[in-house]
């Protein structure tokens, strides 16, 4: 049995208008719809496809955060993952503490592959996968748009979306692979999938049990909305538009 670990993060829906609290201490979370980080959803989908193709695969979905993160784990289970682990933490988790937590989760069970999103769409740091690979001494292949695991699971060939083109790497397994948009289109959980997910095992552990040092290396001092962009003018013809671009904006 081969084992895949898929970390999923609970994040605000990308269709949600994010508002900053007036005192700049964080964002307003009232009324926000929470989803699985879209890049992590792609990771779950890829793991399920590997299982469908290669069989004999067990997929563990792990989330770190408050108990509400159970919802995101259940989504992963409904998509086809086999079991869930919730690492309970009320404390703010950043890329570094997330990587250190995942390191402990990995070490408890040993996995053949870690598949995770290239970044979370809330903090946008794009660090956790690489930090995890470095701390576990595993090879990494980030920004994957194609993944081929060898039949014997000794290596994987990964095509990466990089500036200026597509790069293909071969990495030894276990490895940490982070997903980019083009890798796949995640399925919607089916109704039977959702029903089954409720019966799949979901283990809860507290972050302190894992012995993770939660000292953060990054302190957010204040947050603010971006500078407002003033609405411009409505032109009434193509001619006027071309004229404005040439003579006012001077971009032509």
């Amino acid at each position: 049995m081969k084992k895949i670990l898929v970390p999923v993060k609970r994040v605000p829906d990308y269709e949600t208008k994010i508002k900053v609290k007036p005192d700049g201490s964080g964002i307003q979370t009232d009324g926000i719809k929470w989803i699985v980080n879209p890049f992590d959803e792609i990771a779950v989908e890829e793991a399920v496809r590997l299982k469908e193709k290669l069989g004999e695969v067990e997929i563990t979905v792990v989330s770190i955060g408050p108990s509400d993160s159970t919802e995101q784990i259940r989504t992963g289970l409904a998509m086809g993952a086999d079991k869930g682990v919730l690492v309970l933490s009320e404390a703010e988790i950043d890329s570094d503490t997330a990587a250190r937590t995942l390191e402990q989760v990995f070490k408890k069970e040993q996995f053949d592959l870690v598949l995770m999103g290239k970044q979370a769409i809330d903090s946008d740091a794009n660090q956790t996968g690489q930090l995890l690979a470095a701390s576990l001494g595993l090879p990494q292949a980030t920004f994957a748009s194609k993944l081929n695991v060898a039949d014997d699971w000794s290596t994987a060939e990964v095509t990466r979306e990089v500036d200026g083109g597509l790069e293909t790497l071969k990495v030894s397994l276990p490895a940490v692979v982070t997903t980019d948009l083009r890798l796949n289109e995640p399925r919607y959980p089916s109704l039977p999938g959702i029903v089954k997910a409720k019966k799949k095992p979901l283990e809860e552990i507290s972050i302190s049990e894992l012995g993770v040092d939660l000292t953060s290396k990054v302190k957010i001092l204040k947050v603010a909305p971006p500078a407002d962009r003033k609405a411009g003018i409505i032109v009434d013809s193509v001619d006027q538009l071309v004229d404005k671009l040439k003579n006012e904006a001077k971009v032509l």
Binding site: P12, Y14, K17, I18, V20, I27, I121, D122, S123, D124, T215, S216, K217, V218, K219, I220, L221, K222, V223, A224, P225, P226
Partner: peptide, 13 residues
């Protein structure tokens, strides 16, 4: 952060 919908001032400790 949040795809540029939030601008954060941070410090590395």
């Amino acid at each position: 952060m949040y795809a540029g919908n939030v601008i954060a001032d941070i410090e590395l400790t």
